[in-house]
Design a binder for these strands. Sequence first.
DNA 1: CTTGATCCTCCAGTCGCTGGAGAATGTACG
DNA 2: CGTACATTCTCCAGCGACTGGAGGATCAAG
Lengths: 140, 140
Amino acid sequence: MKPLTIGELSAQAGVKIPTIRYYESIGLLPAPLRTDSNRRTYDAAAVSRLRFIRHARELGFEVDAIRQLLMLADDPAHPCGEADALARAHLADIESKIARLQALRAEVRNMVEPCPQGQVRTCHVIEVLADHSHCLHDHH
Amino acid sequence: MKPLTIGELSAQAGVKIPTIRYYESIGLLPAPLRTDSNRRTYDAAAVSRLRFIRHARELGFEVDAIRQLLMLADDPAHPCGEADALARAHLADIESKIARLQALRAEVRNMVEPCPQGQVRTCHVIEVLADHSHCLHDHH
DNA sequence: CTTGATCCTCCAGTCGCTGGAGAATGTACG
DNA sequence: CGTACATTCTCCAGCGACTGGAGGATCAAG
């Protein structure tokens, strides 16, 4: 197969060119071969790897977690438990984010709803922000 | 009232000292008076303002939004609609974040659950990440 | 008077990119 | 073959919202 330019890799994987170079610089992508004129050349494996990275990023995995997942993926004989543990930790993280955002939504709703569209002097939004005791919860 | 040091302000408002200086540098907090030996001195109004900022940050408002809210709060005769609009925009943002995280949670659950604890070769986590087509949705 | 806490400024780092400058190539058209 | 334009290269700076360290000055207590 003929090798790909960075632009083609970018198009095929859906990742911007500067981001590809950034991933290389932090060691997520291996440094590719270069042409005589110093341009990066990629093969199909690079497309897969970059898609893997992109997908994991879209799912909210941090770069360090992706680094571990890639190492695991590179070793097919490796027991699955570690990848599973990473994903489960990520799931727990997502769930706590959801819970916090839901509490937050309740606060902000409480802030917005009784606003009588008057002046700032009597505005519930400003008042709530100025005084924490108007909050539904105080754990934040 | 006797003025506060930056450390006292920090303790009373629950905001770290470097963060206070940072807020001053970006114009969220006005530059305070200084002692003869160049130390910052604050009054009770600074505590309120900083608490307002902290509270808004905890509720996830961005600094730019807080800047606007502060200007509104500083002008009691101002109509309430703008503060309300800011809060409502923020509410919509929170709701979309929750929706995205819930979709994400479904993906990651789908990734984790059927994992038979075998080897990476057959690991669902790795497989899903490597191939987007295993996803429940493809809008991400 | 000494010790340790607090404060000052400045600068660099965090994370995950993003984009610009300026130079060197590659490609397409006439 | 020349010219124009697209693409790529490296390096560096910036985003947001802090955080922390270095190195020095000053304060408060014993």
